[in-house]
Design a protein around this nucleic acid. Structure first.
Length: 503
RNA sequence: GCGCCCUUAGCUCAACUGGUUAGAGCAACAGACUCUUAAUCUGUAGGUUCAGGGUUCGAGUCCCUGAGGGCGUACCA
């Protein structure tokens, strides 16, 4: 680095630092070193290396030559001997770079590497006197030059904004972040395997919808130029998945993104991942069994335990989860008996006692749900299936076999938060039409979250949807539960943020 | 949307009730060092204190506006 760039004399302002490293690139090229070579053939991951040689005695030398690659995270220069910590996706190992082994010129080249550089090395496996497994390097090759400095090697990257915007830097610097996403991927893989083992097929359905249905939420609107029409990003895949059951796929699931044009919070991101599944010939009771199996199995696969911690409180997911009706849970937590058969004025009176703001077109069922959400949901600590929601707030769920004003529907609540929503599906096309028409009237009346009327969906039902149980599980929230984090942004690789001010 | 809080070097953090030249560690640069482990030691450089305005003899610190973020709340199957 003897070049006359502004950075050559030890300057370290951001611009100068970059200029200095860019100048370093030129210097490397002049020496015939490609800072971005095309490939490197390794024969061991670092975990494999540790697995094979982890129990060598201190001070051991082997004549086993290995080729490994990774990112340089720490360098301890010691004059004619350099130690470095190399990390790949599987683990890390120490490099032992001795001038007497690789020669002065090679050693100086190694010492010129920066933290953050990717390198590939060849060398023999050894341990130091203190027993640290190391590769005694005989050849080292720069694989990719880092132009930006790593975050603080001890404290990592703490600034939340930067962690989310520059997730790559977060992942390099913070073990905690890597762990959260390891849990995420393991949990999703486990749930997928659980379903495939049980004969479910994974499908993909449209994300661009002509009618945003399957849930009640504000959609994102986009525009198709060639067709000159507005389309909606899906708020749920439900109606398409049930079309597939009509078509004869008896067990289907989809893991994918839903989009809802609503507020952000520690539990809400405008795009989030949902697992939805449908199984023919069963009802919501099987969905409860399946929810327990999916979530407990995901915990075991990702954490090796079924014990999770919510707000500092441990729960063992392995125990059977409580199943109780909304009505009895409200009675327990609010001390009132509420049912959609009660006159609206009476239920509204109860709602007012709990300071619930009431809208004019709400019926007893909607009021009952509001009372539940205000008084009960947040207080359900243990995993609980909340059963039997009012028909009024469940336009796609089948009416309860024992009560015409309730549906066979449940939500799963753990630590006061919702994780799943499921029902015995409504498969009577005539009734479905009536219920969707009621939703459409709400929409026409100004309710921008009413479900749109999807005529083709009703047509599909007219071909016959078998008795079917269906469920949606909020994957991001399950991952939060397993990873023990309290913000959804921590489990999203790239959470939604406002645009960054130009650098 | 509303309320409270935060934003200081590439990173992690300091700076008493407003006080004069904004400090430290890591990273960087120069040097010493062949068994280190966040290596150590010596030296050097690095700042529009988020942006803009205001109050003041004097502002990182107080006030206003804006930007970004966090938490709460509202909305939200």
């Amino acid at each position: 680095m003897s070049d006359a760039s502004p950075g050559s004399e030890g300057a370290a302002s951001p611009d100068e630092l970059r200029a200095q490293r860019l100048a370093g690139l030129d210097a490397l090229r002049e020496k015939g070193i490609d800072p971005y070579p095309v490939r490197f053939d390794r024969d061991h991951s670092l975990a494999e290396l540790r697995e094979q040689f982890g129990d060598l005695e201190p001070g051991a030398e082997t004549d086993v030559t290995v080729r490994v690659a990774g990112r340089l995270l720490l360098i301890r220069r010691q004059g004619k001997l350099t130690f470095a910590t190399l990390r790949d996706a599987s683990g890390s190992v120490q490099l032992f770079v001795s001038r007497s082994v690789i020669g002065t010129e090679e050693h100086e080249q190694f010492d010129a590497l920066d933290l953050g550089d990717w390198v590939g090395v060849e060398g023999t496996v050894m341990t130091t006197r203190k027993g640290e497994l190391s590769v005694k390097v005989t050849r080292a090759q720069l694989l990719s030059k880092a132009l930006r400095p790593l975050p603080d090697k001890w404290h990592g990257l703490a600034d939340v904004d930067t962690r989310y915007r520059q997730r790559y830097a977060d992942l390099i610097a913070n073990e905690d972040a890597r762990e959260v996403f390891r849990v995420r991927f393991a949990a999703i893989a486990a749930m997928r395997a659980h379903l495939v083992e049980r004969g479910f097929v994974e499908v993909e359905t449209p994300i661009l919808h002509v009618v945003a249905g399957g849930a009640t939420a504000k959609p994102f609107v986009t525009h198709h130029n060639a067709l000159d029409m507005d389309l909606y990003l899906r708020i749920a895949p439900e109606l398409y998945l049930k079309r597939l059951v009509v078509g004869g796929f008896e067990r289907v699931f989809e893991i994918g993104r839903n989009f809802r044009n609503e507020g952000l919070s520690t539990r809400h991101n405008p795009e989030f991942t949902m697992l939805e599944l449908y199984e023919a010939f069963v009802d919501y009771h099987e969905m409860m069994d399946l929810a327990e199996g999916l979530i407990t199995g995901a915990a075991l696969a990702a954490l090796d335990t079924t014990v999770v911690t919510v707000d500092g409180e441990p729960f063992d997911l392995a125990k059977p989860w409580r199943r109780a009706s909304m009505r009895e849970l409200i009675a327990e937590h609010a001390g009132v008996d509420v049912h959609p058969s009660m006159p609206v004025a009476d239920v509204a009176e109860i709602a007012r006692r709990f300071d619930i703001p009431i809208e004019k077109d709400w019926g007893s069922g909607k009021l009952m749900l509001e009372i539940y959400e205000k008084t009960t949901e947040g207080n359900l600590r243990e995993p609980t299936f909340v059963l039997d929601y009012p028909v009024e707030v469940s336009p796609l769920a089948r009416v309860h076999r024992d009560d015409p004003l309730l549906t066979e529907r449940f939500e799963l609540v753990i630590g006061g938060r919702e994780y799943a929503n499921a029902f015995s599906e409504l498969n009577d096309p005539v009734e479905q039409r009536t219920r969707l028409e009621a939703q459409a009237r709400l929409g026409a009346g100004g309710d921008d979250e009413a479900m749109g009327y999807d005529a083709d969906y009703v047509r599909a039902l007219e071909f016959g949807l078998p008795p079917t149980g269906g469920m949606g599980i909020g994957i991001d929230r399950v991952v939060m539960l397993l990873a023990g984090v309290s913000s959804i942004r921590e489990v999203l690789l790239f959470p939604h943020l406002r645009p960054e001010v130009a650098e």
